[in-house]
């Protein structure tokens, strides 16, 4: 990573915020009912409300479900742990990273936290940064 790397980083998805404090996810929250969406919605899927605001999603959560994917489409590296994480009431999809992809290492309800990693630089030197969730060793699993 070069010294000016922060200027040449790009988040892997638009809802990953890298430049406003610690990396975190940002959702569109319906001003009427509070439903949250990572993509843009014309109206709220829950209440048809028309107004949304941007909100930061909690970076710590618990593993709500997972699968250890051993067989995938062309170009997808396996095995990996596909995870659903309950981030303080907002469910987030991502890979479980920095954790062995084995049933012994992954447990329903385990505490996890957002982490980022590089997907490498393109020919222009722009580095894509993705998020995943890693075991939160500071917390007891429940």
């Amino acid at each position: 990573m070069t010294n000016n790397s922060t200027a040449t980083q790009i988040p892997f998805v638009g809802y990953l915020e890298l430049n406003d404090g610690e990396p975190h996810l940002v959702a569109h929250e319906c001003r009427s009912c509070g439903a949250r969406f990572f993509d843009r919605r014309n109206l709220c899927a829950n209440c048809s409300g028309a107004e949304f605001k941007s909100v930061a999603v909690a970076t710590h959560g618990t593993l709500r479900s997972f699968s250890i994917v051993a067989f995938a489409g062309p170009g997808v590296e396996v095995p990996f742990v596909a995870a659903l994480v309950d981030c303080d009431g907002t469910t987030v999809r991502g890979n479980l990273i920095n954790c062995d992809p084995t049933p012994d290492a992954v447990h329903l309800g385990m505490a996890v936290r957002l982490a980022t990693y590089s997907l490498g630089a393109d020919s222009n030197g722009v580095e894509a940064i993705n998020y995943g969730f890693e075991p939160d060793l500071g917390k007891e699993t429940r």
Binding site: P11, Y15, A72, G75, V76, G94, D122
Partner: peptide, 21 residues
């Protein structure tokens, strides 16, 4: 070919295997 945001999530690459399955 260059990381370029595309689609409703503004993803710069295929998300299968990178954001779960």
């Amino acid at each position: 070919a260059g990381w370029e945001p595309k689609g409703r999530y503004g993803a710069v690459g295929g998300i299968d295997g990178r954001l779960g399955t």
